[in-house]
Design a binder for these strands. Structure first.
Lengths: 244, 244
DNA sequence: GTAATAGTGTCTTTAAGACATTATGGA
DNA sequence: TCCATAATGTCTTAAAGACACTATTAC
């Protein structure tokens, strides 16, 4: 290939969709923009790619800036790169987008970079209701792609454990699936499926005693990364009620 | 997020792994580099992202330059973006990599941009044998990721039809799977699986008469894009011989 | 005829889904 | 006691894999 020495006037940014499950709902971290372009709208945390910086590092830096806590243990992966020439009205930019899958609830810190950062239920953001925030740039598309990535990866990887605080119960894990997929799963069959997958989860020996019901056994994430055979999503629109 | 007005001295390129099946083997288009860096090594076709150009368009332009033929009907999709600060010794660059899934055999045209372009069997390139070409930049990693993308997508999409010249037989389609996966599939079961997936293929009404054996019915790609349930790959190392 | 490939029938095994049953705690 | 959740058992159904058998051509 030909690599010319021409340097187009082009900024490379990194944007991160931090996904987490709060109160049974899949949520994304957004910060309100105080400056143009898109002042007053909400945006994914991000930043400019440094001259000698790998994009993975830039994504983690942006996450660290936005949350104010350590991001080392989090699962952060590249999503895709968005290059529409019109995506940034203030000048040409391409965005390398990332997804982070995060357990528990890192309370967003208010900083110069992340004033007014908060979690939004993904459903509220994407369904475009009256109280839905307007998103800056093409961040609504990025978020939609990030959510689809999460939904797909729950099927054939052990990614759900990245959303759960350890130690967790099988019920906790099931509620992660239900929040991300927006569907209800059969508790008994789900338990059997998880336990029959080698090294999906590893028992800690303890047991939870929260509220009514039989105390559940506690688990940590196991060593497995792939799910074979996968856990298949209910088809879209399938709310658990059999059609036949 | 903060978008500074600083413009790092950074080139954005597009590189495309054109994958096709020739003589029963999965092949990739490479061109020999005549200039430094990496003069004498082989590289994926690519180019610099234009100032007002979408990366998808840049990828198709690079393909068009490298093959000299129309690329409109081809399946071209973004793979991922490679940002290692050391990936280009001549200066900072990030590469938005693409994969193209192409039927038949576009004979590489020799041009200024694509002198000495030819198809290489992917297996030969990645297995690093004695006659394997050395690849420029991080293109070996890009190629490996592209091949893995192709292998995975054959499982749960109808992508295999993108590799087959229409009209094709079920046997042609099976040989695509076998070439990409490097495995042998059971002809009878494969036929039943393909025909039982609605709109995977659509019969043309004709039939092929090539060589010995019962003439096979001819098909075109159907309207389906997803495969549900998927066609699962034999596990790596499974050459079709049962272990039990 | 033989060789080779296409396509179908059928049996076994795996695993998902539906649903019942038992277990164990809290109010 | 009743209620809620956890975990397991069992039956049905879907579908993959193994394999036999038929079909149709080239030689």
């Amino acid at each position: 290939m030909t690599r010319s020495t021409r340097r187009p006037d082009l900024t490379v940014t990194v944007d991160v969709a931090l996904l987490t499950v709060r109160h049974g709902r899949l949520c994304v971290l957004l910060s309100e923009r105080s400056a143009d372009p898109f002042a007053g709208t909400w945006a994914l945390p991000g930043g400019t790619l440094g001259a000698d910086e790998d994009a993975d590092d830039a994504a983690r830096s942006a996450l660290s800036d936005a949350t104010g806590i350590g991001v080392e243990p989090w699962h952060v992966e590249q999503l895709r790169t968005y290059t529409d020439p019109g995506r940034d009205p203030s000048g040409r930019s391409v965005s390398i987008a990332y997804v982070a899958f995060v357990p528990n609830v890192p309370a967003p810190r208010t900083t110069a970079d992340a004033a007014g950062a908060r979690f939004w239920p993904v459903e509220d953001v994407l369904d475009g209701g009256d109280d839905a925030p307007a998103l800056a740039f093409d961040h609504e598309q990025i978020l939609a792609d990030a959510v689809e990535r999460a939904r797909a990866k729950l099927e054939y990887t052990t990614l759900a454990t990245a959303f759960a605080d350890e130690p967790f119960t099988i019920g906790d894990l099931r509620r992660v699936y239900e929040a991300v997929w927006g569907a209800t799963l059969h508790p008994g069959n789900f338990t059997r499926k998880v336990l029959s997958t080698p090294d999906f989860v590893a028992p800690t020996g303890g047991h939870a005693s929260r509220g009514p019901g039989r105390p559940a056994l506690l688990y940590r994430a196991g060593d497995a990364t792939a799910l074979n055979p996968p856990i298949t999503r209910p088809s879209p629109g399938d709310d658990g009620i059999p059609t036949s």
